[in-house]
Amino acid sequence: MTTRIVELRQGILKKNDELARELRERFTRAGVLVVNLVSSPGTGKTALLERTLRELQSRGQRAAALVGDLETDNDARRLAASGAPVRQINTHGICHLEAEMVGRHLDGWELGGLDYLFIENVGNLVCPSSYDLGEKIRVALLSVTEGEDKPLKYPTLFNSVDVAVITKTDLAQACVFDRSAALRNLNEIRPGIRIFETSAKTGAGMRDWLDYLCAQRSVALAQG
């Protein structure tokens, strides 16, 4: 027996990447801006999204959401109260969303009738970084209650995002949150990252975040 080396040079997540590319083309054709929200559990993805969906709708924008969790449809029910179309993706143990799950949950939705689609990933700061979902913008959330060094502890994820949203700023003082350290750490791991600071409870910082989304959609439409 002789051993022969066969070069493959093939991405391990090739299937996911191909599906994600197809989804991205589909989203671009439909003119829908797709945003993938990632963070640890309890950072406030759903709270930010509840407010974002409501406020986009009051600006006359059409937004929908897919929300990923291992189990329960609690988040989908919370988000659906905004009046936006929402679907729950239950992964039953899988720690991240994959492009195939996103594609499957779009069945029957007229994407051309949407301006924004938010994908709330499974709460996890490791695994979602490897999986492209066809999004235009990947956003990491970091709450003031988690500590300023999260970006240093989870560099693989924070380095993969376009935007960071610091959430729960209404609690910053009580948590003795070191804002400048958080901003510095984000920039150290993802130089030039766009950062927003919000409180979904008080509404602080929401206008900048929403203005950013609207501007990104205009840019995407102009490019598409």
């Binding site: 002789t2 051993t3 022969r4 080396i5 066969v6 070069e7």
Partner: peptide
């Protein structure tokens, strides 16, 4: 830095 690839496989073939 983001590579996650199968570079090659070593196979044994029948003589």
């Amino acid at each position: 830095g983001r590579e996650l690839e199968i570079e090659s496989i070593g196979i044994e073939e029948a003589p």
